[in-house]
Design a protein around this nucleic acid. Structure first.
Length: 889
RNA sequence: GGGGUCAUAGCUCAGUUGGUUAGAGCGAUCGCCUCACACGCGAUAGGUCGAUGGUUCGAAUCCAUUUGACCCCACCA
């Protein structure tokens, strides 16, 4: 026999088989024209991040796809890598410095950068080892990192190309300024949050009169940079004031009252203070009316030198209170109202964004966005679920230019040099040594670095050696376009859309055809897993407890396409139980096998009905799993797997085989039964492998080879995935078997409901329609075993023995003679309940058939079906009634 | 303000073009330590498919209205 431990211990096998796969390079793909590539780009996690359940789910799905396709013979490549994550990583190191009592500025740029490099070396990439624990079959030979020299060259190339084409430009714009991180961030890194704010009302004196103009604002501190007051041109209250001037308190500047349609008379006071350097709308108005732009804040959000005392140097929120206090002192303050408003916050530092006027680099997006939108419109680029297409298109159709410069030190430095003599700008793939305009050597590089996404968007290109191995390197032409991108809907703009744009721009084709959005992981209350809430589940902890297979299976089975998945730790017990079930089912089969035992082929064997049903069921499961995976319905695929292995293979297949297994070794019936079981188990393990790589590998390796599965490679991960079309089909037998299952269930139900001791064996009489009579005769042994019968009498002429319990089904009645044991009243009650249930169904059917327009208009097959049902119900009902009558006698 | 998703058993969700008696897992209840597995086996209960109206011979499914929950986008000071 083949020995297996009484229960599955993941710790014994997971590391072993992962190492095995790595040693044999099963996960590595190289360019091979004879094989079709199947490529998935792993969304690169931040190099310093830790594995969380979001990764656990998303990457388990990717691994499922990759392993599945690899088994189907594709040259599967799952490209792993990490992202340098400029802001996030710099923040972590700056926090360390703070603890040490220093700052990056005190340290200097070069030292600070080195510190980050060291830090990444030491702590970075931990997440990659965690991926190995999960069993992810990445092509580690291709491991990439966005700051790798190779990938950095691609960043440089793309920047230079786009700059020379005029698609990258420098401009003074109002940008989202993060006062904590002291950098600009892009629109997509800003999140609006509703906060309870205050709307302040105060007045500005109108020059040359004793009148005032009332103002309402939520940000009084910006008044120091006001350069106008605007009203709606149609507003009767203020019409006569247009063109007059206001004496701005504290600064004593004279600013004009202007008219602009933007102003809504009904809001606030109907007059708006205009601060073009600190508000996006005011910025536009400022441009329209050629107003001055006065920046009154520093990088850190304090009031700048150009502001008067007592405001100068105050933090913006302190200054806000101070302005109000001073306005009160001047008697210009009216009132304040509490006011709910949405305010932009920095995604990273969580601080309130300060719109700030500054010089930044931008990518002009319109031209890039159009083809990307078109690809989705034409259906060339597909989203799963499809509803995201609208979101994607909306963003592309309303695209804004992308601010790519960051005032950080961690990242790719912008490859731009300014000439101190002619003020010209130079760039190049190589660092220039002199100004490309005046040849002066007096040049200095731009201080800023690029947005991290400016390197991430090249993920479909740069890891494959593009462009430094030529803009159509062999690898790139082979693996790009990739097949499916599995990612979170949150980064559809930040990442997905941009990859599409840049791939289309530089390769004139899509980076991938399918985008699968996986569910957001939430707790049972529906709250997103987050560090601050501490409601997350640590996948490593759960892996330690239940094993990677259990975690993968559970995560995938819980996750519907898109949407959200609610999970708690206890859910993983499900997966754990399933893994254990597979283990124990194998244990039963293995008990009767010798290692390397030679098994007969199924061809030429006289299979039993139950065996044919089981084989047919495997075929059906194979077809379903495959179809669900093709349709990106991963949880359905996994559910079918569970259904088949547990509900079909274990509950019926193995139970039926037990009598044959009990035969002595070498008996031909036992050999036959084993051949079927090993064949089916082998198929089941192959089907399950993409979800549960380790337990399936361990069992598969121990199991003897079955001739009908062909050659056996060194690992199940490269064994052929089952193909329904190549498997034996027994559809008629499967239908017949359904009746046997109904009979067994009927008997069990009667026994259980009537409280008959489970161990007590009873004779069973079965009245069966002529058509299935021989089937039931054949199945008597199974009925005995499965329904605890000591004797089975069956046939079309069987009649109700006196004093018996009964059950009826489609085409049969079963009787359990139980002289003396019968509780007549209980049995009567049970039968009448059943009678009522069937009567209700029959009434519904009759209702339909008596409806003239149903008979007239319903299609023939539906009508026929209904008639068959009617006959069936009537038959069953009459049988029950007879039994009730017999009981009463 | 615009767009999107969802509402089905106590819980989490299936239900793919409208058509047998609306399913599964978990939980609950009852009975079983049956020689692979108590991480197990067998059985049972539980739903007027959010509400209203419409289309249809027929609606959980399609349409309209409505209630509630969530997500994304958006510059009303």
């Amino acid at each position: 026999m083949i020995e297996l431990e009484p229960s599955y211990d993941h710790k014994l096998y997971e590391k072993k088989w992962y190492r095995h796969s790595l040693e044999h390079k099963f996960f590595s793909a190289s360019v091979d024209a004879s094989k079709t590539p199947y490529t998935i780009l792993m969304p690169p996690p931040n190099v310093t991040s830790q594995l969380h359940m979001g990764h656990g789910l998303g990457y388990s799905i990717q691994d499922l796809f990759v392993r599945w396709k690899r088994m189907k013979g594709f040259n599967a490549c799952w490209l792993p890598g990490t992202d340098h994550a400029g802001i996030a990583t710099q923040m972590m190191v700056e926090k360390d410095l703070e603890r040490e009592g220093t700052t990056r500025r005190a340290m200097g740029r070069e030292k600070f950068f080195q510190r980050l490099v060291d830090w990444k070396e030491k702590y970075g990439g931990m997440i990659l080892d965690q991926f190995k624990t999960m069993g992810f079959s990445c092509d580690w030979d291709k491991l990439a990192y966005t700051m790798d020299p190779k990938l950095s060259e691609a960043v440089r190339y793309v920047f230079v190309e786009l700059y020379r084409e005029g698609l990258i430009y420098r401009g003074e714009r109002l940008v989202n300024w993060d006062t904590v991180l002291q950098t600009a961030i892009s629109d997509d890194e800003v999140e609006s949050q509703e906060i309870q704010g205050i709307l302040y009302y105060y007045r500005y004196p109108i020059e040359g009169t004793d009148q005032f103009i009332p103002i309402a604002t939520t940000r009084p501190e910006t008044m120091l940079g006001d350069t106008a007051v605007a009203v709606n041109p149609e507003d009767e209250r203020f019409k006569q004031l247009i063109g007059k001037q206001v004496r701005l308190p504290f600064t004593n500047r004279l600013i004009p009252i202007i008219a602009d349609d933007y102003v809504k008379s009904e809001f606030g006071t109907g007059a708006v203070k205009i601060t073009p350097a600190h508000d996006p709308n005011d910025f536009e108005i400022g441009k329209r009316h050629k107003l001055p732009f006065i920046n009154v804040m520093t990088d850190t959000g304090t009031m700048a030198e150009n502001t008067p005392t007592p405001f100068q140097g105050l933090d913006r929120f302190v200054a806000r209170k101070e302005v109000i206090k001073q306005m009160k002192a001047l008697g210009l303050f009216d009132e304040e109202k509490s006011y709910k408003t949405t305010v932009p916050h920095s995604e990273r530092s969580k601080t309130i964004i300060e719109p700030r006027l500054s010089q930044q680099w931008f990518v002009s997006m319109k031209q890039l966005a159009e083809p990307a939108a078109e690809a989705a419109r034409q259906g060339e680029l597909q989203f799963h679920p499809e509803s995201w297409k609208k979101t994607y298109l909306y963003w592309l159709d309303n695209i804004q230019d992308w601010c790519i410069s960051r005032q950080l030190w961690w990242g790719h430095r912008i490859p731009i040099w300014y000439c101190k003599d002619c003020e010209g700008i130079s760039t190049g793939i190589e660092d220039p040594t002199q100004c490309e305009h005046c040849q002066s050597k007096n040049i200095r590089q731009d201080e800023d670095v690029l947005d991290t996404w400016f390197s991430s968007w090249l993920w479909p290109l740069s890891p494959f050696g593009w462009p430094n191995e030529g803009t159509s390197s062999k690898q790139l032409e082979y693996f790009n376009p990739t097949d499916v991108l599995v990612t979170a809907p949150e980064i559809i703009f930040l990442w997905v859309a941009r990859m599409v744009m840049v791939n289309l721009k530089f390769k004139q084709r899509l980076p991938f055809k399918h985008v699968y959005f996986n569910a957001t992981v939430c707790d049972k209350q529906g709250r997103k897993f987050s560090k601050t809430l501490g409601n997350g589940i640590d996948p490593l902890e759960v892996v330690e407890l239940h094993g990677a297979d259990a975690v993968r299976f559970t995560a995938i089975s819980l996750a519907p396409l898109g949407g959200r998945v609610r999970m708690e730790k206890e859910d993983f017990e499900n997966g754990s139980r399933f893994v254990n079930k597979i283990w124990n089912a194998s244990r039963l089969v293995f008990q009767h096998l010798e290692p390397n035992q030679t098994l007969p082929s199924l061809k030429g064997l006289q299979l039993s009905l139950a065996e044919k049903w089981l084989l047919n069921r495997l075929r059906e499961a194979t077809e379903k799993v495959d179809r669900h995976l093709e349709g990106y319905r991963v949880n359905d695929a996994v559910e079918e797997l569970h259904h088949f292995i547990w509900g079909a293979f274990c509950d019926w297949g193995l139970e039926c085989a037990k009598s044959d297994l009990a035969l002595p070794a070498g008996h031909k019936d036992k050999e036959r039964a084993l051949s079927v079981l090993v064949y089916v188990l082998d198929g089941a393990l192959r089907l399950a492998h993409p979800v549960m790589p380790f337990v399936t590998e361990e069992l598969w390796q121990k199991m003897p080879k079955h001739p009908d599965w062909g050659d056996r490679p060194e690992s199940i991960c490269i064994a052929a995935f089952p193909q329904a079309g190549l498997m034996p089909a027994y559809e008629d037998e499967a239908k017949q078997w359904k009746t046997i299952q109904d009979i067994v269930s009927g008997i069990r139900s009667v026994r259980s409901q009537m409280g008959l001791p489970p161990r007590q064996e009873l004779p069973v009489h079965i009245r069966i329609d002529e058509a299935l009579a021989s089937t039931v005769t054949q199945a008597e042994e199974w009925i005995k075993r499965l329904a605890k019968a000591d004797k089975v009498v069956s046939g079309p002429e069987v009649v109700r023995p006196g004093q018996s319990l009964s059950a009826v089904g489609k085409g049969f009645e079963v009787y359990l003679p139980v002289q003396g044991l019968i509780d007549v009243e209980k049995e009567q009650k049970r039968l009448s309940t059943e009678e009522q249930r069937l009567q209700k169904i029959l009434s519904g059917i009759l209702g339909k058939l008596n409806n003239a327009s149903f008979v007239e208009r319903a299609p023939e097959d539906v009508l026929e079906q209904t008639r068959v049902q009617k006959a069936n119900m009537e038959e069953q009902l009459s049988a029950i009634r007879q039994n009730l009558k017999a009981l009463a006698d």
